[in-house]
């Protein structure tokens, strides 16, 4: 019974993903023409004269979307804090008095 439910849920998720792929297809058909292209010209034209950066990917990561990179760095910091907390050296617990 569990396997049947899991298989049905997997099929539903797969159908949603396939629908999303078909929806992402561009106007002219094919995967080379994405739908959301409103900001492309701005980023490609603005990163050299405004930010003085040749690599547009780095300009987007560290300048236009810098807050996302700040969140990523914070995630890495909290991951290290979790590892240090879990693997810390602890003393042997005292015997519980009965």
């Amino acid at each position: 019974m569990k396997k049947v439910i899991a298989m049905i849920a997997l099929l539903i998720i797969f159908a949603f993903l396939a629908g999303a792929i078909v929806e992402m297809r561009g106007e002219d058909g094919g995967f080379g023409n994405p739908v959301n292209t409103d900001m492309d010209e701005y980023f490609l034209g603005d990163s050299q004269p405004h930010n003085q950066v040749n690599n547009v990917v780095t300009a987007v990561l560290f300048d236009y979307r810098g807050l996302d990179t700040l969140g990523e760095a914070t995630i890495l910091f909290s991951a290290v804090s979790g590892v240090l907390t879990v693997l810390r050296k602890i003393k042997a617990p005292k015997e519980v008095e009965k």
């Binding site: 930010n51 003085q52 950066v53 780095t58 300048d63």
Partner: peptide, 9 residues
């Protein structure tokens, strides 16, 4: 070149 971008890198 780059301003604050190389420093952040």
């Amino acid at each position: 070149t780059g301003g604050t971008v190389p420093l952040m890198n």
